[in-house]
């Protein structure tokens, strides 16, 4: 986990240095914009993070294992894709929730399908951002071109799973 954090900060400081070399005012603007984004993201995040933890407590014992478990196969992958596509909210909801699912027995391949379904099909993001900015025709084109892909990602994960033994968190 620290690798990701360190990598992020090395990249961030490197980019900031490039800004600084262009001119101090560009660097100041970058820091200012980062601060603005933080104040915008933080309230939503602080409200959303506990939601995933509460939902994880509410999942009945054995539910994830039964419907989305490693043995649920293609049906589980399809169900997970569907669940991902209706999952609202940003990464602060999706990833903690997937962590909860994995810990309560969901299969990694099914969770790959869930994240892919959320990322590619996510109705919430499509309706609240894509529709007002790019319009219905773009959504039609994008969904037609990508509808089956999350399912394929899940099936690919099922095939590749033996290579990643650490992917199952229990």
């Amino acid at each position: 986990m620290t690798v990701g954090v360190i990598g992020m900060w090395v990249l961030a400081l490197g980019a900031l240095f490039l800004c600084l070399r262009r001119s101090p005012s560009v660097a100041r603007r970058a820091v200012g914009e980062a601060g603005t984004s933080l104040t915008r993201v933080a309230p939503v995040m602080l409200m959303a993070l506990p939601m995933a933890a509460f939902v994880a407590e509410l999942i009945p014992d054995g539910w994830a294992e039964r419907w989305l478990g490693p043995d649920s196969g293609a049906a589980g992958v399809a169900l997970a894709t569907l669940a991902g596509s209706v999952l609202p909210g940003g990464p602060f909801v999706a990833f903690p929730l997937v962590l909860g699912f994995l810990k309560s027995g969901a299969g990694p391949a099914q969770m790959v399908a869930l994240i892919s379904g959320w990322a590619v099909l996510g109705l919430h993001r499509t309706l609240s951002w894509e529709l007002p900015i790019l319009g219905p025709r773009f959504i039609l084109l994008r969904l037609s071109a990508s509808l089956v892909l999350p399912f394929l990602a899940g099936m690919a994960a099922e095939a590749l799973l033996p290579l990643f033994p650490g992917a199952a968190l229990r």
Binding site: V5, M8, W9, A12, A15, V31, A34, S37
Partner: peptide, 9 residues
């Protein structure tokens, strides 16, 4: 925080 700084830069 690192990520927001990176995207802004």
């Amino acid at each position: 925080i690192g990520g927001l700084l990176l995207s802004a830069a």
